[in-house]
């Protein structure tokens, strides 16, 4: 896989203003996504995964706001683009699959018209027959019946709606698809189909996919590289096989230890305690109050994200010291 970067996020900060202070939901996050790769973001609920997606797409609504950073896409900083430039770039280059597909479709518009809106906005007036033909092709290739196009959202099941949205996300052959928990509300069988669909889309149109899910089993199965987030920060990034085989950050190990297995009977290793209050994150490493390996330095100094070889980065004092020693 090439080392080229399709999109690079640098030191992105997205906060929410509240009466009792700022919630630092995304606090200095940096990573990049390569072309055609599926990049996973894992982490428990409330760690800032969805905020990260919304901030990257500049869709964050008040009281949320972007406090700093850059999102470099095709040489331009998305956060600095003019509204109109950003609008014309949306969906055509970067599409988005929202967390709750249940309400993501306009309830009073037929599916066909909601997709036609996108085509017409980005490609100008196109004859209706051509649009219908494209939608039909798209639906056939994504395992949807072309009849779905004529339906209203409420006539579809949750899984079908999710399929429609995923199909819609691919209609303009975007370079990047940001999928925020696309399978969370679905049962395992439907989940499989949806994941397969995402893989098919990647293989067919060559988009990169940023897959946000707390489900480590899903991550293990589909992503190429994985970033683990904890309390608004990325704690570890690496090729998914390496991360699962040899997790470096204690939090990553804990997440992997919490995946149930049907082959071996073992006690699931839970993680004691709760994620910190993001208005007042603990000093030093944010994970230290729950970390089994916490040392004195962890309580005071925030560990930087350092490269530890083979494209892996980790933010943990256990490894910083090793680097120093080596």
């Amino acid at each position: 896989m090439s080392m080229e970067k399709l999109v690079e996020v640098r030191n992105l900060k997205a906060y929410y203003k509240t009466r009792s202070g700022e919630v630092k939901a995304v606090d200095g996050v940096s990573f990049y996504i390569r072309p055609k790769e599926i990049f996973g973001i894992a982490g428990e609920s409330g760690c800032g995964k969805s905020t990260l997606a919304l901030a990257m797409l500049r869709l964050l609504k008040p009281p949320g706001y972007i406090a700093g950073g850059q999102v470099i896409f095709q040489g331009k900083d998305l956060l600095k683009l003019k509204a109109e430039e950003l609008r014309s770039l949306r969906w055509k280059y970067i599409s988005y699959i929202p967390q709750s597909s249940m309400n993501a479709l306009n309830p009073v518009k037929r599916i066909r018209d909601q997709i036609a809106d996108v085509i017409k906005t980005h490609e100008g007036e196109i004859p209706d027959e051509e649009i219908d033909k494209r939608i039909e092709e798209l639906f056939t290739s994504t395992g949807l019946s072309p009849a779905v196009a004529k339906m209203y959202p409420h006539e579809l099941s949750g899984g079908m709606r999710q399929r429609v949205i995923i199909a819609m996300s691919a209609i303009l052959n975007p370079r990047l698809i940001v999928a925020d928990e696309p399978t969370t509300a679905l049962d395992v069988v439907v989940q499989r189909g949806i994941l397969q669909l995402l893989l098919d889309i990647r293989n067919k149109i060559g988009s990169s996919i940023m897959l946000i899910t707390h489900d480590m089993a899903v991550q293990a199965e589909v992503v190429d590289r994985l970033a683990v987030m904890y309390a608004g920060k990325i704690v570890e990034i690496g090729d998914v096989d390496h991360v699962f085989k040899e997790p470096l950050h204690p939090y990553t190990s804990a997440l992997i230890g919490a995946i149930p297995s049907i082959r071996e009977k073992r006690r699931l290793k839970g993680l004691k305690g709760l994620p910190p209050d993001l208005r007042r994150p603990p000093p030093g490493c944010r994970f230290h109050p729950r970390c089994p390996h916490a040392k004195e330095i962890c309580k005071k100094v925030e560990p930087p994200l350092v490269e530890v070889g083979r494209g892996r980065v980790v933010a943990c004092h256990l490894y910083v010291e090793e680097e120093v020693r080596a």
Binding site: L57, L59, K61, R87, S88, L89, R90, W91, K92, S95, Y96, P98, S100, M102, N103, A104, L105, N106, P107, D117, V118, T121, H122, I165
Partner: peptide, 16 residues
């Protein structure tokens, strides 16, 4: 509503 956020993500024009 989610479908408004979605419409924005789709890059639709504000008046649409």
């Amino acid at each position: 509503e989610d479908y408004i956020l979605m419409a924005e993500a789709k890059g639709l024009k504000e008046k649409t």
